[in-house]
Write a protein that binds this DNA or RNA. Structure first.
Lengths: 115, 115
DNA sequence: ACGCCTTTTCGATAGTTGTCGAACATCGCA
DNA sequence: TGCGATGTTCGACAACTATCGAAAAGGCGT
């Protein structure tokens, strides 16, 4: 019998209808977390430690928790890795167009920074 | 000679190109400020003290400052009143669709709260 | 069984934020 | 000139946040 499969406490994820706008806006109002979201936009999922952010592992863990509890990402455990994925479908159903618009705005924001 | 007209220090407003996405998201990630924005969406401008928010005057002043310095609203002085207006045109030019999308999301958010 | 890798949790800390009350500034008006 | 109305500024304060390092938990490979 495989001893893995559901041992650690289940990860908390809000249901789609429970995703709160203020939580989402707050989650996105941070450069480190926004970087995570931007990367996740281009890939279906990715392990936590592989993101191009320059913070301590414990800090990164904190940001993933904020993103997960706000409903922006899902996290799935596999072995000793934790994979994250954007909840694009859920977010689109809950707040249509929000993610796309914010990411487009992010591109504008960064274009201006380097101009 | 009218003794009014530009006596107090000019109010700080970021230029359109200087509006920062993180500042905007942070400004919108607060229910009191979001209420102000929602009301301002339906009227060209409005005096500070006339908003349906239940906080102390000093707190309200603080929120207006956050909204103004983030580039979400403009403030104009007239006599001893201060009128606020949404920077809809500037915001649309800087981050197309952002304000509309967030306000639509707000409607969804509140609809769910009361459901 | 042991060590390594990945990630979380804990404790601490410095900085930010929302809130208030009191005091101050400005203007219009009597 | 003084009063009242409108807002702001100034402390102060409690709550929250981003950050870190150290320690621990869980899984894999040798």
């Amino acid at each position: 019998m495989p001893r893995s499969t559901r041992r650690r406490p289940a990860l908390a994820h809000p249901a789609t209808e429970e995703i709160d706008l203020y939580d989402v806006l707050h989650a996105l109002a941070d450069p480190t977390r926004m970087t995570i979201v931007r990367v996740l936009r281009t890939e279906p999922e990715r392990a936590c430690g592989t993101f191009p952010v320059d913070v301590a592992p414990s800090t990164l863990s904190h940001h993933f928790k904020v993103l997960r509890e706000s409903g922006v990402i899902t996290q799935r455990e596999e072995a000793n890795r934790r994979f994250s994925a954007l909840r694009t479908v859920d977010l689109e159903r809950r707040f249509p167009g929000l993610l796309d618009t914010v990411l487009a705005a992010l591109a504008r924001n960064e274009a201006a920074d380097t101009a």
